[in-house]
Design a protein around this nucleic acid. Structure first.
Lengths: 248, 248
DNA sequence: GCAAAAGTGTTGTCCTTACACCCATGC
DNA sequence: GCATGGGTGTAAGGACAACACTTTTGC
């Protein structure tokens, strides 16, 4: 039994209230915070990621995620959008927070905590406007080592993506406005790392009734052209699934 | 077109590598970091949460989550476990990171970023050993306002829990070792906020074949006693689901 | 014997899976 | 005409939802 003056749970403690919260917080250790953005794209049936060359001498030659420090009084979300804007010139992109990484040795210069953000975007739609530090798309599967712990962050975001894409229609952000069912299927197969039955895949999406036939066909393909569709975001938003089901 | 010296994406940039990473990081703004733990329990068919009285004068009388600042070179996970240990005396509890909260005004004393952790535990199993700041269990549904932005954090963790419990057998951490199907169903109903068909619920768990009949019955119940079960964690770990299914 | 919850089965519907053939186009 | 992928249907099996009655126990 602890001999504590507050032994009885429900007794009101009136002693030792802290008046100067500022002083308290001033006594906390302070840490540099960064955000790192994992930007996925899709092209030629392949999942891609935006990387830049690390500009640290000690990581010379290695690639790294798009990141920056978080400014004074800047929200993490804002910092992530800012990084994306500054590094790529892109707007109109949605970012999701994945999680924080805090190994004390994760940054060679001492402790830096980073918060990972993830996004998916349409390579055709979002032209890179800034190529500083050799910014460009890398095939996801070819990525071996990265600067810092960025490989670990990337892998965590990839798992996040795999899960997320099965529950939300994120995948459509990776495709052109108008896409064929084959492209859609390639996307899912590439991200989930499985192959899917074509007929069942098509039936699945047909039954969801969330694809709009735009009345056009593929062009410049060396085989029979497929129909083009776009995703019915409005309908999706209206009928969002209220999911109840125990499954493990 | 930007007139940038690195216009060509694939050209190797050999200029302006940063030699002194320490200096760079030293120039980053630094922020006090805290962790906050949302500890869920379950008792008398009700979802509960551990709270303490805020010890800030300005939040006098309000309840708050269990939190503390993150120490120098301390991992976030470690800090969360430490808080739990220090505040409750509990060991052997799993914590999951939910996400970071970073509104610049979320802490009255200035900017503090917090990372929320969530856990579920068996109230019977984990006796509170420390009652400092009136630590005790609160009925989740009765919680109105909390200090700081802790209500927002709590709500985010509740949503996280609802999703999580459908995909992972977390719920069993909230129950006694041996439990009846009724208790299990009460748990799911309380957390998901729905009512479930008893027969279908039992069939579902029967078909999973993850419950072990311990050959005992409930005692001291004012009605026909039910069989007691325990969860087969080993079998679950062996057969973990490889889930592929598009559903939104 | 009454209240309260335990325990149990069937049926219809829907979703998922597995599987094979003809069609349209470019070359 | 051949290669390439587009487009389609069906049957079986499994999961899920809806639904009501009998049993056991405490009081």
């Amino acid at each position: 039994m602890t001999k504590n003056v507050f032994d009885k749970p429900l007794e009101k403690s009136t002693t030792s209230l802290i008046k100067d919260a500022g002083k308290l917080v001033a006594s906390y250790p302070k840490v540099p915070i960064t955000v790192d953005c994992v930007i996925f794209g899709f092209e030629e049936s392949e999942l891609k990621v935006l990387l830049i060359r690390s500009d640290l001498e000690m990581y010379k030659g290695l690639w790294s995620l798009l990141g920056d420090n978080v400014k004074n009084n800047e929200e993490l979300d804002h910092a992530a959008y800012r990084v994306l804007k500054e590094r790529t010139g892109m707007n109109d992109v949605y970012l999701d927070q994945v999680r924080a990484f805090s190994h004390p040795q994760r940054h060679p210069a001492g402790r830096v905590i980073t918060v990972a953000y993830c996004s998916l975007l349409n390579i055709q739609h979002h032209e890179l406007k800034i190529y500083k530090n050799e910014l460009h798309w890398h095939s996801f599967s070819s990525i071996k080592g990265l600067a810092f712990d960025h490989k670990e962050i990337l892998d965590a975001c990839y798992k996040w993506l795999q899960k997320r894409i099965q529950e939300h229609p994120l995948g459509f952000n990776l495709l052109p406005d108008k896409f064929s069912l084959r492209e859609l299927q390639n996307l899912y197969e590439a991200i989930l790392g499985v192959s899917l039955d074509r007929r069942n895949f098509r039936k699945k999406f047909a039954s969801m009734d969330l694809l709009i036939d735009v009345g056009e066909m593929e062009e410049d393909v060396p085989h029979r052209p497929g129909k083009l569709y776009k995703f019915n975001f409005e309908k999706y938003e209206k009928n969002k699934r209220k999911w109840i089901g125990i499954d493990f």
